[in-house]
Simulated assay, not measured.
Amino acid sequence: MKLHQLIKAYEFDEIMPVINDMFPGTAQFRDPLNEAYNIMASLRPVASSKSIKYKLNKGKGEEQYMGAEDSCFNGPWEVTLGKDVSREKGVDLNDIEILANCIVNMCFIGKYPQAFEKAHQALLRE
Rank of each mutant, 00 (worst) to 15 (best):
V79C: 09
S48I: 07
M66T: 04
K50W: 09
N57G: 02
A122F: 01
L6E: 00
V104Q: 01
I96T: 01
V104M: 09
N94F: 04
L6S: 06
K89A: 15
S48M: 09
L56T: 09
F29Q: 04
P76L: 11
I7E: 01
N105S: 13
L124V: 09
I19R: 03
D95R: 11
T80S: 11
G59N: 00
R87P: 07
Y65P: 03
N105R: 10
M16C: 03
A47V: 11
D21R: 15
G61T: 08
E69P: 04
E88K: 13
E11L: 06
D84Y: 13
T26A: 12
Y112A: 15
L93W: 07
V104L: 06
G82P: 11
I7T: 00
G82W: 05
T26G: 05
E69T: 13
M106E: 01
L3T: 06
N105D: 08
E88A: 15
D95K: 13
E14G: 05
K83S: 05
H4M: 00
G82L: 08
K8T: 07
I103A: 03
L6D: 02
N105M: 13
K8D: 14
R125A: 10
E11K: 12
Y112R: 10
D31W: 11
E63K: 09
M22N: 10
L33G: 06
E14K: 12
Y65I: 05
E35A: 11
K60M: 08
F29Y: 13
F73H: 07
E88P: 08
Q114I: 13
R30Q: 13
D13T: 14
P24I: 02
K111T: 15
Q64K: 04
Y112H: 11
I7M: 00
V85A: 02
K89Y: 13
K50E: 14
Q5W: 02
R125M: 05
D92I: 06
M16P: 02
L99H: 00
I98G: 12
F23T: 06
N74I: 14
V46G: 03
N94W: 06
S51D: 13
I15N: 03
I15Y: 01
P45T: 04
I15M: 01
S49V: 14
C72N: 05
T80W: 10
V91S: 03
V91I: 12
L123C: 07
P24A: 04
I7S: 00
F29G: 03
